[in-house]
Amino acid sequence: MKKLFLLTLLMISAGYTFAQKMACCKPSATQQFAMLASDKKFRASHKDPVKFHFQSAIGKTITYHTTDGKTANAYLLKAKTATNNYLLVIHEWYGLNDFVKREAEKMYNDIGNVNVIALDLYDGKVADNSQDAGKYMQAVTDARAKAIIKGAIGYAGSKAKVATIGWCFGGGWSLQATLLANKQAVGCVMYYGMPEQDVAKLKMLNCAVLGNFANKDQWINTKVVTKFAADMKAAGKTLYLHQYDADHGFANPSNPVYDTNASKEAYGYTLTFLKTRLK
């Protein structure tokens, strides 16, 4: 009987230890999204982007210090009149390419009186095919990405009002960047990115979130989005949710699944949301 009791205790202890390891090793929301790059169907759904070249007369590349003791590059569009309004733009899984730079400048012009910083979470790497994009996305560590984001917030300054926007890979990181901005955060826009699934973390949000999602998306699907809406409600936070009869990547003109109508409508909501918060 004594041996049986000791054996039971050992089994319970082993089970508890395993549960602890599972808990501590659970991938973050951004890591979960990065893992999708191992899915052949996910990679196949991202057709190689249409070749696109953009040359700006006002945007420039900057270098700034990151919180891990390194440096990072970014694309800056500086407001014509001095302001503490900042919009952090986070690229999709191809990297900080010319399409993202053009979108950054479009928002810069449409919002008005705002500094726009398009971040580079790939540290200079830009993909023109899904194979490389998947490799670059999976090579990003949470620690490095957060250091880059924190560095950008530091570059903006302690008085900056920070809004964020991102697509796909950048959609999930837009939400994470908003969490990192803490009380400086004034608004978050995420396009078909992986939501944060920890309600305790969502409770730390200091602003509303606008989500543009695609009902035909097989990965950030309606089930994921429905849970996100429920989690935001449980956290007591505001989510402006917009869902479209479109596919993942619908807002990218260089993507063959680009949906003109859905993209136009989503951008309208996005622009109104950001203008209201970056006055």
Rank of each mutant, 00 (worst) to 15 (best):
A145I: 03
N84K: 14
W93Y: 11
P49Q: 13
G95R: 06
K203H: 01
I165F: 02
A127Q: 08
Q32D: 06
A160L: 15
T63F: 00
N109W: 11
H91M: 10
V224N: 05
K161Q: 09
K70A: 12
Q176S: 09
K60L: 00
T178R: 15
T270V: 02
G69E: 05
G15H: 07
I148G: 06
A133Q: 04
I111L: 14
R102F: 15
F5M: 04
H46G: 00
L96V: 10
Y64L: 00
G59K: 03
G211T: 10
Q243A: 11
K203C: 02
L88I: 07
N255V: 10
Y192S: 08
K41D: 15
Y258H: 15
D132C: 00
T164V: 06
E196R: 03
M137P: 03
L202E: 08
T276I: 06
A147I: 05
R43P: 01
N212M: 12
V100Y: 04
Y108N: 05
Q31N: 08
Q218D: 05
R102Q: 15
G124N: 09
P27T: 07
S174K: 09
D231I: 04
S45F: 10
A23T: 14
K51P: 11
L271K: 07
D245A: 15
D132K: 12
A235F: 13
G249L: 07
G69L: 06
E105G: 04
S38Y: 14
N182G: 06
M204H: 04
I149S: 00
A37H: 08
T66M: 08
M22Q: 13
D198Q: 11
A127R: 09
A79L: 10
A147W: 12
L10Q: 11
G268T: 08
D259A: 04
Y155A: 02
A118C: 02
M107V: 08
L4C: 01
A181N: 01
A177V: 11
A246W: 12
E103A: 06
I58N: 14
V186Y: 11
F5S: 04
M1V: 09
V126P: 07
V199S: 04
G15M: 10
S254M: 12
G268V: 05
K233H: 11
I58S: 15
F52V: 06
M232D: 01
I62Y: 01
H53V: 12
K106Y: 13
P49V: 13
G193Q: 13
A160C: 13
D259S: 10
S263Q: 11
G166K: 03
K47F: 13
P27K: 09
M107I: 07
V114D: 05
Y86D: 08
W173E: 13
K146Q: 14
A23Y: 14
T30R: 12
A163N: 09
G193I: 09
V199F: 04
C188N: 14
A57K: 09
N215I: 03
A214C: 05
G171Y: 14
N109F: 13
A200F: 00
D128H: 12
E196Q: 11
A82M: 09
V257E: 00
A181F: 02
A229R: 05
F42D: 00
F5V: 08
D68M: 05
A104G: 03
D120C: 02
R144A: 12
F250T: 06
